[in-house]
Amino acid sequence: HNLTITQGKLFFHYNPKLCLSEIHKMEEVSGTKGRQERNDIALKTNGDQASCENELLKFSYIRTSFDKILLRWEPYWPPDFRDLLGFMLFYKEAPYQNVTEFDGQDACGSNSWTVVDIDPPLRSNDPKSQNHPGWLMRGLKPWTQYAIFVKTLVTFSDERRTYGAKSDIIYVQTDATNPSVPLDPISVSNSSSQIILKWKPPSDPNGNITHYLVFWERQAEDSELFELDYCLKGLKLPSRTWSPPFESEDSQKHNQSEYEDSAGECCSCPKTDSQILKELEESSFRKTFEDYLHNVVFVPRKTSSGTGAEDPRPSRKRRSLGDVGNVTVAVPTVAAFPNTSSTSVPTSPEEHRPFEKVVNKESLVISGLRHFTGYRIELQACNQDTPEERCSVAAYVSARTMPEAKADDIVGPVTHEIFENNVVHLMWQEPKEPNGLIVLYEVSYRRYGDEELHLCVSRKHFALERGCRLRGLSPGNYSVRIRATSLAGNGSWTEPTYFYVTDYLDVPSNIA
């Protein structure tokens, strides 16, 4: 807008934040220059609390790290170098490059900038070799853009010569660093050979998330399962459950009422301010606690030095998902009996873990797994792929695949051998790939016309006998059925096997 004052003059007093240069501009645009008398524009009460600059400061050096910015700028000295009290560095987070010096300023003089007072450097006698002032900004957020400017702080001049310097606002972004852990990993099994893994992005990506790394490792069953005799009275049979499938998407929606109208769909109840505040506090606490764990609990591995020492970490090797089922080394339970199943799973520490690289999504279907087997899954978020990966501390989750139908069934015939004193040795093959492992066998036998009897055969007993022995049988026709019990439950009964026990007292003698 054009402003013209045809008559009258300007009068400025007691404006401590208004620089004289701005008042002189007002004289020019209003056409009143030359009308004012000496005392109409006070030299001592206008701009006496402001830094009124008329020179431009330029930054000469900028260096960044993930949490620091090192700045240096060209030296500046007023005509009387004693008038320079120091520099004021202003900075704040700036997602967009549209910041002005006066953003967030209120009537009390406060604003949204963080201000650092910096002492002037030592003055050199040689004007050509003056030290460049600077400042190291610490405690910054990774991968965050900051708006920065600097200006001088000078003393009051009796001659009211307006001098000083100020830089333009520059924008500097800190470097990326390792992201925080992925949030809320959930693993479920939808079949006997697959596990579905879902997660949420890290709360602090500290860069642009480029991919996720998912490692999985087959877990050995508890050692007590191999040692305890679950045929003993009072000892509860062990059981394991597989990871249940995901709930429906509708039930997972946030901010939804727990109660549904019987007449149909209901609208979600909005969260109160107290609920939102509580969630923010919980989120802040979780982030602080995660940072504490990362800094205190997890110790970084030592990389190899120039002395030739090897990095103890196993090298990563990509495998196809079809090879995942046989990740671990199978060892027989008892070496003397080769027909026992290889369900003991000690994992070799030198073995390469299978892994998958996930790009542009937060889910993965891990296939080719062994049925009813526990897996430990390790999830890392990465925001750099080359020249070397920059990934987060791992988040861990466990899951067990679903049982395989008929995996616990005894394959092959049940054979028998009759000894003296009416002892019958029953023999059968253990299931080759049971659900988890076989903890015991149930032997059901009966003599024709009598009630059915049951015998429990422990895992250890089966390994020693290759089956079991029935003792003290009365003469007669017998039928026997056997079924295995694994961590997933009972298998199917075998087809009945028949044998006849004679009275050993009636056996004919070869003595003449």
Rank of each mutant, 00 (worst) to 15 (best):
S203V: 06
D204S: 05
D204M: 01
D204L: 07
P205F: 15
N208R: 04
N208T: 05
I209G: 11
I209D: 05
H211I: 01
L213A: 14
V214G: 15
V214A: 06
F215H: 05
W216K: 14
E217H: 15
E217P: 13
R218E: 08
R218M: 14
R218A: 08
R218N: 12
R218K: 07
Q219F: 14
A220R: 06
E221T: 04
E221R: 14
E221K: 15
E221N: 05
D222T: 08
S223P: 13
S223F: 01
S223E: 12
E224T: 07
E224Q: 07
L225M: 07
F226Y: 14
F226C: 11
F226K: 03
F226L: 11
L228P: 13
L228F: 13
L228M: 08
D229I: 08
Y230K: 11
C231T: 02
L232I: 12
L232T: 11
K233L: 12
G234W: 07
G234F: 06
L235R: 08
L237C: 10
L237P: 13
P238M: 04
P238K: 11
P238G: 04
S239W: 10
S239V: 14
S239E: 12
R240E: 15
R240I: 05
R240F: 07
R240Q: 02
T241A: 11
W242F: 12
S243W: 09
S243F: 10
P244G: 13
P244C: 10
P245W: 11
D250I: 11
D250E: 12
S251Y: 04
S251L: 11
S251G: 02
Q252G: 11
H254W: 14
Q256L: 08
E258N: 13
Y259F: 06
Y259A: 09
E260G: 03
D261P: 10
D261L: 10
D261R: 15
A263Y: 07
A263M: 11
G264F: 05
G264V: 11
G264L: 13
E265I: 03
C266S: 14
C267S: 06
C267W: 02
S268R: 15
S268N: 13
C269S: 05
C269V: 10
K271E: 13
T272I: 06
S274H: 05
S274W: 10
S274K: 08
I276A: 04
L277K: 04
E279R: 14
E279V: 03
E281C: 02
E281N: 15
E281H: 11
S284P: 02
S284R: 09
S284I: 00
F285S: 13
R286C: 10
K287I: 04
T288P: 11
T288E: 08
F289G: 03
F289T: 10
E290I: 14
E290T: 06
D291V: 13
Y292K: 12
L293S: 05
N295V: 06
V296E: 06
V297S: 09
F298V: 12
P300T: 09
R301F: 03
T303Q: 05
T303R: 10
G306S: 06
T307F: 08
T307M: 08
G308E: 14
A309P: 07
P312H: 08
P312V: 04
R313N: 15
R313M: 01
R313I: 12
R313T: 06
P314F: 12
P314K: 13
S315I: 10
S315T: 12
K317C: 07
R318P: 12
R318K: 11
R319L: 03
R319K: 13
D323V: 06
D323W: 15
D323E: 12
V324Y: 05
V324Q: 05
G325T: 13
G325H: 12
G325Q: 15
N326H: 04
N326W: 05
V327K: 03
V327L: 11
T328V: 06
A330K: 05
P332E: 15
V334Y: 08
V334C: 03
F337L: 12
F337E: 07
P338W: 09
N339T: 07
N339G: 07
T340C: 09
S341R: 07
S342F: 15
S342T: 14
T343K: 14
T343N: 13
T343H: 08
S344I: 07
S344M: 08
S344A: 09
V345P: 11
P346T: 14
P346V: 11
S348P: 11
P349T: 11
P349C: 02
E350I: 03
E351A: 11
E351L: 13
P354A: 03
F355Y: 11
E356K: 13
E356F: 06
K357S: 14
V359L: 07
V359K: 07
V359W: 04
K361M: 11
E362Y: 13
S363E: 15
V365S: 08
V365R: 09
I366V: 09
I366K: 09
I366W: 01
S367C: 06
G368I: 04
L369M: 10
L369Y: 01
F372K: 02
R376H: 14
R376Q: 06
E378S: 12
L379N: 01
Q380K: 03
Q380I: 12
A381S: 07
Q384K: 01
T386E: 12
P387N: 14
P387W: 09
P387H: 03
E388C: 13
E388Q: 13
E389A: 06
E389P: 11
E389Q: 13
R390L: 08
C391R: 04
S392D: 01
V393M: 06
A394R: 10
A394P: 09
A395W: 15
V397K: 11
S398C: 12
S398K: 14
S398P: 10
A399C: 13
R400C: 04
R400D: 06
T401K: 00
T401G: 00
P403S: 06
E404S: 02
A405T: 04
K406M: 04
A407Q: 14
A407Y: 08
D408P: 00
D408E: 01
D408A: 02
D409P: 02
V411C: 13
V414H: 01
V414S: 02
V414P: 11
T415M: 13
H416L: 11
H416P: 09
E417R: 10
I418R: 07
F419V: 14
E420G: 06
N421E: 15
N422S: 09
V423W: 09
H425Q: 10
H425R: 14
M427V: 07
M427W: 05
Q429C: 11
E430V: 10
P431M: 03
P431L: 03
K432C: 11
K432N: 03
K432A: 12
P434R: 03
N435W: 00
L437D: 13
L437Y: 02
I438N: 05
V439K: 10
L440Q: 15
L440N: 05
V443W: 01
R447H: 09
R447S: 05
Y448R: 10
Y448C: 13
Y448M: 03
G449D: 11
G449P: 09
G449C: 05
D450T: 09
L455E: 15
L455N: 03
L455W: 05
C456Q: 01
C456V: 02
C456L: 02
V457I: 03
V457C: 14
V457T: 06
S458D: 08
R459C: 14
F462K: 09
A463T: 12
A463L: 12
A463R: 10
L464D: 13
E465L: 07
R466V: 03
R466D: 11
G467Q: 03
C468W: 04
R469K: 02
R469L: 09
L470I: 15
R471Q: 04
R471H: 06
R471C: 08
G472M: 06
G472F: 09
L473N: 03
S474H: 09
S474R: 04
P475Y: 07
G476R: 00
N477D: 14
Y478T: 01
Y478L: 00
Y478R: 00
S479P: 00
V480H: 01
R481I: 02
R481C: 02
I482K: 01
I482H: 00
I482P: 00
R483V: 02
R483F: 01
R483M: 15
T485S: 11
A488L: 03
N490H: 09
E495F: 12
E495W: 15
T497M: 09
F499R: 01
F499E: 01
F499H: 01
F499Q: 00
Y500V: 11
V501C: 06
V501A: 04
T502K: 09
T502Y: 15
T502E: 05
D503Q: 07
Y504M: 04
Y504V: 11
L505H: 09
L505S: 09
S509V: 15
S509N: 15
N510P: 09
N510I: 15
